[in-house]
């Protein structure tokens, strides 16, 4: 009993360290962006995109390529956005569109397949130069620490938090102030009625997918700074965790899904930063154990009110 109490108190002490807190918020910010990207598409298509991480991975490969070609950083970032957005739109056209209206289970398994396919393609590309993984070295300088009030904060953590805040604010503006934003919200609530009123399905879906692609590219830049060695499984772990977070928060609302993404990122940052090494290797177990417990208590989502998800797998 005392052992447990000491361990808990050690954990809590470590967890309140500003250092740990800042890092956890940084991870939460990136996960929140991924959650929005997944949630936007779910809103209009009722499709959980398992392949979201592979979009991020494609962006990371673009950055590594640019770095390898000694392109300036900004040009690499442009390439990253072009590649990710193109791939996202292609995915919508080739996979999502024919799947429209199919059962949720079919869509989930299909994007699962696409995820593996893209990962395998990336592996093939990766191996053409006989190395495993490509370094995106030119971005690494963003990973250096700043000391603010005695706390070492990596530049990228600040960038991530600020970027996430800006992206989320921008998204809120788009959703609440623009016509296409209104159409997207309406489509997420009741697609059929929205169409009966003249809201164009293709345009609404296209916009949601485009926004989710932009977010994936943004995430790709920030993750690549933190993990400059780009392999075919890049962002895979993150996606699995974010998916759990999104379902945990509540898929039905973009807001709750985003909070869910943030919460699971924050929790994993906290656990990773504050647990002693011997235990931190069991971080996934603790995290997913928590996920199961929370899903049992609140199957409809942690941050939602009312009944659970509408879809049925």
């Amino acid at each position: 009993m005392t052992v447990l109490a000491t361990a808990l108190s050690d954990f809590l002490h470590a967890a309140v360290e500003p250092q740990v807190q800042v890092d956890a918020i940084g991870i939460g910010a990136i996960y929140a962006l991924m959650a929005v990207g997944i949630g936007l598409v779910f809103g209009v298509l009722r499709l959980v995109n398992f392949a979201y991480g592979q979009l991020v991975m494609a962006g990371a490969f673009a950055l590594a390529y640019a770095s390898d070609q000694d392109w300036p950083v900004w040009l690499g970032i442009v390439l990253c956005f072009v590649v990710v957005i193109t791939l996202t739109l292609a995915m919508e056209r080739v996979v999502f569109r024919p799947l429209r209206g199919k059962p949720a289970a079919t869509m989930l398994v299909a994007t699962f397949a696409v995820a593996f396919l893209l990962q395998a393609v990336a592996l093939l590309i990766d191996q053409t130069d006989d190395t495993l993984g490509e370094p995106a070295a030119s971005l690494a300088k963003l990973n250096v620490p700043w000391t603010i009030l005695g706390t070492d904060v990596r530049k990228i953590t600040v960038v991530a938090i600020v970027t996430a805040a800006v992206c989320l604010a921008g998204l809120v503006l788009i959703l609440s102030r623009t016509t296409v934003g209104l159409h997207m919200r309406a489509a997420a609530m009741d697609f059929e009625t929205a169409r009966l009123l003249g809201v164009r399905a293709d345009r609404v879906i296209g916009s949601a997918v485009l926004l989710s692609g932009i977010l994936a590219a943004t995430v790709a830049v920030m993750l690549t700074v933190q993990q400059p060695l780009v392999t075919s499984t890049f962002a895979l772990r993150e996606t699995i965790v974010v998916l759990a977070g999104v379902v945990l928060g509540g898929m039905n609302r973009l807001f709750s899904a985003t909070l869910g993404g943030f919460a699971i990122g924050y929790a994993s940052g906290l656990l990773g930063g504050a647990l002693p090494t011997a235990q931190s290797q069991y971080l996934p177990s603790i995290l997913f154990g928590l996920v199961i417990v929370i899903l049992l208590v609140r199957p409809g989502g942690l941050f939602t009110r009312g009944p659970g998800p509408v879809e049925r797998v």
Binding site: A244, V291, I292, P299, G308, R312
Partner: peptide, 20 residues
């Protein structure tokens, strides 16, 4: 006790835990 997407994600969680 779960169903739908929630069940899918929860089974995934079991895989993650077991593997870990």
């Amino acid at each position: 006790r779960l169903s739908g997407l929630t069940a899918g994600i929860a089974t995934f969680a079991v895989l993650e835990i077991t593997n870990n």
